[in-house]
Design a binder for these strands. Structure first.
Lengths: 182, 182
DNA sequence: AACAATACGGAGACTGTCTCCGTTTAGCAA
DNA sequence: TTGCTAAACGGAGACAGTCTCCGTATTGTT
């Protein structure tokens, strides 16, 4: 990639990260181009679809996911506490910007989504936690990790769309945790 | 209301019902106006916001909700079966058109939503089922009916957005049911 | 310095939302 | 029936967002 192209690419991603966080995933792309000081053509050449841009923005997010998972797995306390703590981290991770929970959760099962690979990092992070609990014999039979992603993703989605705060989300996560644990 | 206005109103609602079901909640309103044989101005006078139109379309849905609830409450079998059966009906009711689950679930807590009243019919229908189970002593402590709506609404939302079928939804509903029941 | 190759960016096509306002019509009263 | 007025109509067009095309400008290589 030519030096000027790289420069523009980086600026667009940086601006997009900020704008997505502030205005949500539906922010105008022409606006982002303008804020980055490039024409819309440039933005659309680098990122033909909105999701390609989101994908680039998410690169750093991926690192955060594994880091957070490692920390969650060292959690001291009961299995229930471990699971609940992980659920809260999970919700936090996918709720970084408005519209995120729905986007990420539905991308997990969509092979055509440009952010699919990113989301699968999250799915396998969740898998690590679930497998750890399964080895402890803490889970009911028949629990699939993808279902767990969808359940918690669903809660995060409604919380996102209804502007619920953590205190309203917590009891819902407890219900799901209790439904999963023996 | 003048006779011609009533006529147009009815035609718009009828067309909208069909189009929303076929193309989802995001269908173009100008298209709906055209299909109904009226100008966009007419549509927007009757229904200033998209949700006002949805509200009108939902009138008949409200009847269906209470009817379905009555039937669910007569269900023979265990409490778990009753609850699971109700959950499936609930998902069916809010998944009539694409985008419905998210719309309805988030409208429940939004006093400014024109469809709020309609959604509260659903919320109180759910309340009837939950109270019935509470009287039986079947529920854990601290279960709030609005949480149940959000939990099941969340599952329906991800199912809607990921095109999941009933066999994928069922186990998630079971997790929630198990988390709610003693 | 010249010249490909690469990248830029803005004009504008296209789509959907929504409003304004001149025209038409329903319904009533004489 | 006719005439009148309030109500309703509907389409032109303003506005916003998405995305493309293509003439222009920049890069980096020979």
């Amino acid at each position: 990639m030519r030096a000027d192209a790289q420069r523009n690419y980086d600026r667009i991603v940086e601006v997009a990260r900020q704008v997505f966080r502030e205005r949500g995933y539906d922010a105008s792309l022409d606006d982002i181009a303008k804020l980055a000081g490039v024409g819309p053509g440039t933005l659309y050449r680098h990122f033909p679809k909105r999701e390609n841009l989101l994908d680039a923005v998410m690169q750093s997010w991926v690192d955060k996911v594994t880091e957070t998972t490692d920390k969650a797995l060292t959690h001291e306390g009961s299995d229930r506490d471990l699971l609940l703590n992980w659920f809260q981290e999970y919700v936090g991770l996918i709720s970084q910007h408005k519209g995120g929970p729905a986007k990420i959760t539905s991308a997990m099962g969509d092979p055509d989504s440009p952010i699919m690979t990113k989301c699968q990092v999250l799915a396998s992070a969740n898998g690590r936690v679930i497998e750890r609990l399964r080895e402890d014999g803490a889970l009911r039979d028949g629990v699939e990790t993808i279902q767990v992603c969808r359940l918690v993703g669903g809660i995060a989605t409604v919380a996102d769309q209804s502007d619920l705060d953590a205190s309203a989300v917590r009891p819902m996560l407890e219900v799901v945790a209790d439904g999963l644990l023996r």
